[in-house]
């Protein structure tokens, strides 16, 4: 059998997807990246191969993407995460319809990508200068509120008051703002809700830079947070599509790319 892998080496996590020759997703795996990500990447790939009962030699082609892509020498090819994301997103959303815009919130950056009807990237905007508006920011917030990141979404919908916005654009200052709010006994839910809206507003600004169109797709780890999803939907004024496994879209895209490259090279 022929299998193909896509490896997305991001700043906080390594995501790997394996597809078959028909580009069906067979499985995926996520692990923290950390300092020795080359080693981790290899370990993770091996683990995934084992999990799927495959043979290492069945993986015919590997495409790497993400920050660390160039350092993963085993890959047959590497492509930018923008392209990979676009390919993966289109594939993941294929049953729902055509997507025009991708919002991706990663651990330390966020992006908005605009596609044409053929799926080509026509424009993209990125925020990588500061942690506000990224997954990192949510981690900091959860830490300060002493709750699990996973429960942020739930808490969001329990907010009954006015969302308490955090105005600082810098995560460090926002942190002290949150401490201030907590000190004055404001409801945690309202604070979380406010944080979500603050991120949502920055994201929408980013999206506006590439142009808001119908068909918005949202992925990256924070897309698991339904509160944030809701906030972004409200801010942008339309429904957005979140894939069931939003963290791996980019690696999925890389894996699809692997199929195409392999076929091209062997045709």
């Amino acid at each position: 059998m022929k299998y193909f892998a896509g490896i997305d080496i991001g700043s906080t996590a390594i995501k790997i997807s394996i597809v078959d020759g028909k580009k069906n997703l067979l499985g995926s795996r996520i692990s923290a990246s950390g300092s020795m990500f080359y080693k981790y990447a290899q370990e993770t790939l091996d683990a995934l191969i084992g999990e799927l009962n495959l043979n290492k030699n069945d993986i015919l082609y590997i495409v790497a993407t993400g920050y660390g892509r160039k350092l993963y020498k085993e890959a047959n090819e590497n492509i930018s995460e923008i392209t990979a994301n676009a390919i993966g997103a289109r594939a993941a959303a294929s049953e729902f319809g055509e997507i025009k815009t991708i919002i991706n919130i990663g651990g330390q950056d966020s992006k908005a990508i605009s596609l044409d009807s053929d799926g080509n990237v026509v424009n993209f905007a990125m925020n990588d200068r500061c942690a506000a508006g990224t997954g990192k920011f949510l981690d900091v917030v959860a830490l300060k509120l002493e709750i699990d990141v996973e429960t942020l979404g739930e808490s969001h919908f329990k907010s009954t008051g006015t969302p308490l916005s955090v105005s600082s654009t810098c995560a460090v200052f926002a942190e002290s703002e949150i401490i201030g709010l907590l000190g004055n006994n404001h409801s945690i839910e309202d604070i979380i809700c406010g944080v979500h809206y603050s991120i949502a507003k920055r994201i929408v600004k980013l999206v506006k830079r590439v142009g808001v169109k119908e068909g918005i797709y949202f992925d990256g780890g924070p897309a698991l947070n339904m509160g944030l999803v809701h906030a972004i939907e409200n801010e942008i004024g339309q429904r957005i599509f979140v894939p069931s496994n939003p963290q791996i879209t980019t690696s999925f895209g890389a894996a699809i790319m692997a199929v195409d490259s392999y076929n091209y090279e062997n045709s």
């Binding site: 959303a93 729902f96 004024g237 429904r239 957005i240 979140v242």
Partner: peptide, 12 residues
């Protein structure tokens, strides 16, 4: 196109 379920705010 969506798979989320909550109400979206009206402009007002």
């Amino acid at each position: 196109m969506s798979n989320t379920s909550h109400e979206i705010e009206s402009p007002n």
